[in-house]
Amino acid sequence: MMPVNPAAEDEDSARPATGTTRTSNMRLSIGPIQYFWPRERVEKFYEGLAKHSPLVIYLGETVCSKRRELDRDAWIALARMLADHGHEVIVSTLSLIEAGSELGACRRTVENGEFTIEANDMSAVQFLLERKLPFVAGPGINLYNHLAIDYLRRNGMFRLSLPVELGRKHLEAVREHAREAGMQLPEIEIHAWGRLPLAWSARCFTARAVGRGKDQCRFECIHHPEGQHVSTREGEDFLNLNGVQVQSAAVQDLSARADELAAAGVDILRLYPQAEGLDTVIQRFESALAGHPIQAAEGSVDGYWLGAVGMEAGLRPSTLP
């Protein structure tokens, strides 16, 4: 499918203008690559990112343990290269662990001894607690209120990537309740750009789409660098198949809401890798953080942030001249 081109219609807004001031201390992060790309593509992607001004970069295979274009040593080598360039590098664990071999791999990742971990299921959380290591809770860890957040914070969680269905009002409520209870919150990260991870299954939907089972997948997903598009029978964009993960077809784009995000106390905006054009996306968000008005990308959604239906797009602020 076609990569999303975020800047097709607002090149002007992406160019920093003089006289604006940075309104927040929010930082940008790059989420783990969700798709199965050939090794050269992955390495090229991170070589490109390396030269960028400092980012938080999450990496590692989070979707399917059969995807082994890069083994753990190769991921760690990439992590070192990025850290040497001044980035904050975090290694992410698999989101759904079924086999004993996958659990062993998760444990060895936690024990890498060098890089901080993003835990994407409670198995990883347990391994981290046993070793008293600090960690980031990924979007798959269900923390829906200030008490649960505080529980894991007391056990080493220093950053939380919010569950995707939670938005602004929710975050404000968490802040308010935490303040009243005298609780300190961890850093808060939010899904600011990319297709939303909506569901996980034992089944590989990409293999199913070509009439195969997961055990006979023949790595069909390597032919779909941004997954497979699912629309309704009327042609309405709906979902995106990515192996055992189901994503939204639409990109969630919160770039136009930088002020709201800062006001709600978001610390980090997470941008998910896509096959082409992530540079432009990063520029777009840097521009937003610098205080420039941005219009949301065409076809993008932000319903979850508004506390509404996830696939809806809110009223766009008409801030462009």
Binding site: L96, A199, A308, V309, G310, M311
Partner: peptide, 20 residues
């Protein structure tokens, strides 16, 4: 067919989810 507790398909389409 999805991992229970980690499925947002309903909230994506309707705003109402199993979790919340």
């Amino acid at each position: 067919i999805m991992v229970e507790g980690r499925c947002q398909l309903s909230s994506y389409a309707t705003g109402k989810s199993p979790n919340c």
